[in-house]
Design a protein around this nucleic acid. Structure first.
Lengths: 219, 219
DNA sequence: GTCTATACGTTGATAGAC
DNA sequence: GTCTATCAACGTATAGAC
């Protein structure tokens, strides 16, 4: 259903395994990502993470000094992952809009790891959770990457006449905000509410929407 | 700068004062909205709320049985507020797109109470915070209102040829997701990053973007 | 390598003083 | 009407057993 999502997952797992040679550490971090991204820093208990990873509560502290340390590491991993996804999109063949479309589909996939990452990064860089300072710093720093990679694509797209000629930074902010909003809606969505395609999501920055099936636009 | 925002604030304050005759209760709830919407349920401490409202920690329990009760009440207030904002927009004069534009500007105002509400409602309906069940129920129930009011506007807009002919529910979900994403970005934004205008935000559902200054669309 | 037991701090909630 | 003192529950982090 989503080759983008699969690619990201494979890439992510690969990078993850390389960076984290120890099995227990991998397990813990992996499940911590899930728990933290769902509950936020304060609500997530070490016991939850440990249980989810299949360990006892105390065992976690064999490898990690504190809850804060786990969270900060995860945020860093997440920020790197999100940055890499955008960087990869930038180097794909095709038009600028094709690249952004790929990226969008990767983000919007139902089980998207990229999305989980994004949620994590933003959950605390916000301070909108009682997140630790260290995590905020790491995130604020690494958050620049996705923008640095996306903005050139946008500029390219503007030159090619595919994207409207507004401030690229503003467009990038709008893009990531939308992605994030949809990601959050995804979690909330219990059932099977209709979700927008990448095509609809990207209309806000697309220059001339002719050819997408509009009828009697000026009857 | 934003008459929409002012209107909402006035309306909200009015309704709030009517519903909450007691000064201390008003103070506590008012500050609880701020603290909860910034930190989330688990990270927000009763002490924070009390201090912010100018009371001692214990005093809060003169009026409220529990932290959960405060949160649930706030979520209810927030959901009502958001619902009313959309309902009001629905009854404005002007084209459907005018109405949605008004609503969008109200949401996106820098100090928007509507936005604060929205964040609150969604923060927990998600379960994406360790929010209490009671709050989730209330929110899931009241969340329907904004959609019920927005969807007819969208349908109207489609009939008028202003809005693309996609599933109105999907468009509504996309709309609110975008609004929410931008609202979150707002908090994070320390400085003065460029933010999209309502016009840009609504392009994704607007039918024919001719007349918004596009040059050489088909050279 | 993994678990159990426990110490210590924090916080939600109560009771009683002023 | 508001605060201080305090209890009980919980969660983080540690120490030591298997």
């Amino acid at each position: 259903m989503s080759r983008q999502s699969d690619w990201l997952k494979a890439r992510y797992a690969e990078n993850f395994a390389n960076a984290m040679p120890n099995y227990a550490i991998r397990q813990i971090l992996l499940h911590a990502i899930e728990v933290f991204s769902k509950k936020g820093f304060a609500a997530a208990k070490i016991k939850d993470i440990a249980a989810s990873a299949g360990f006892s509560q105390g065992y976690v502290y064999t490898y990690f000094k504190s809850k804060e340390e786990i969270f900060t590491q995860i945020v860093e991993l997440a920020a790197d992952g999100a940055g890499r996804a955008v960087a990869f999109a930038a180097e794909l063949p095709g038009s600028p809009l094709d690249k952004i479309t790929w990226l969008t589909e990767a983000f919007l996939a139902p089980d998207s790891i990229a999305m989980q990452h994004w949620r994590l990064i933003l959950l605390q860089s916000a301070g909108s959770e009682g997140a630790p300072e260290s995590a905020k710093r790491v995130s604020a720093e690494k958050m620049k990457r996705p923008f640095e990679h996306l903005i050139p694509i946008i500029v390219e797209g503007q030159k090619a006449g595919e994207i409207i000629e507004e401030d690229p930074m503003m467009l990038a902010i709008t893009y990531f905000s939308t992605i994030q909003g949809l990601g959050i809606a995804r979690i909330q969505t219990v059932g099977d509410l209709p979700f927008p395609s990448a095509e609809v999501v990207l209309r806000f920055m697309k220059k001339s929407p002719k050819g997408d099936g509009e009828r009697d636009a000026h009857f």
